[in-house]
């Protein structure tokens, strides 16, 4: 029973926050709604007994990707004074969202304690899990059967890194003044010193 309630709660909240992601006019709010959507997706994963994927969702998406999004959003031209002006007005909303997350956490843990949701499969029987946790099963697949694909994914990340450097890296201009002795020695007075005879009332033209 508690699982069913938790399922509908997570599912409805996830869809609602996904809708808000695209309807929110303020990109910062969009990202915050997105984080809520990720949290609810993680909750759904816990319900079906895929704890590892749930943890990945929270750590990778909420932790890293959402923070990255926030960085990008911060670089957009946003009037932060206007944002802060709405802080008091939006404070109750913020508190409400925080309460929702807290309630979900409690409910999610409760549902998890009560055992995983029975998934409907075409023949009415879920495939029996091997006698190991799903982290072990994933690891066995990734480093066994799909080893070559795992390595190829590594190559893709390498391409992304090389590409980012090629497209953005510029030869560094050294921050400190560097001393080039041969240039100093080769410098002649006639290159460096200009003699001028300024007339009265006229400026000096260099």
């Amino acid at each position: 029973m508690i699982q069913t309630i938790a399922f509908y709660l997570f599912a409805v909240l996830m869809i609602a926050s996904a809708v808000f992601v695209i309807t929110a006019r303020n990109p910062v709010h969009s990202v915050l709604w997105l984080i809520l959507a990720f949290f609810n997706a993680a909750g759904l994963m816990v319900l079906v007994g895929a704890e590892f994927i749930a943890m990945l969702l929270v750590i990778v998406y909420v932790g890293a990707v959402a923070v990255l999004f926030l960085f990008v959003v911060m670089m957009l031209d946003i009037d932060f004074a206007e944002l802060r002006a709405g802080f008091i007005k939006n404070f109750p909303l913020g508190i409400a969202i925080a309460m929702v997350l807290l309630a979900e956490l409690v409910l999610g843990i409760g549902a998890y304690q009560a055992g995983a949701l029975q998934l409907g499969t075409p023949d009415g029987l879920a495939a029996p899990m091997a006698d190991r946790s799903n982290i072990e099963s994933l690891g066995a697949l990734m480093y066994g059967r799909y080893l070559i694909l795992f390595e190829v994914a590594g190559m893709i990340l390498l391409v992304a890194m090389v590409g980012a450097i090629v497209l953005t890296h510029r030869p560094p201009k050294s921050a400190r003044a560097s001393q080039n002795i041969s240039r100093q020695v080769a410098r002649r007075p006639e290159d460096a010193v200009v003699m001028k005879q300024p007339t009265v009332g006229q400026g000096v033209e260099l």
Binding site: V152, M155, I156, V159, A160, V162, G163, V166, L167
Partner: peptide, 11 residues
């Protein structure tokens, strides 16, 4: 394979 090729192609 497709993504490895495409990503390099975008760059």
């Amino acid at each position: 394979g497709l993504e490895l090729n495409s990503l390099a192609a975008y760059v």
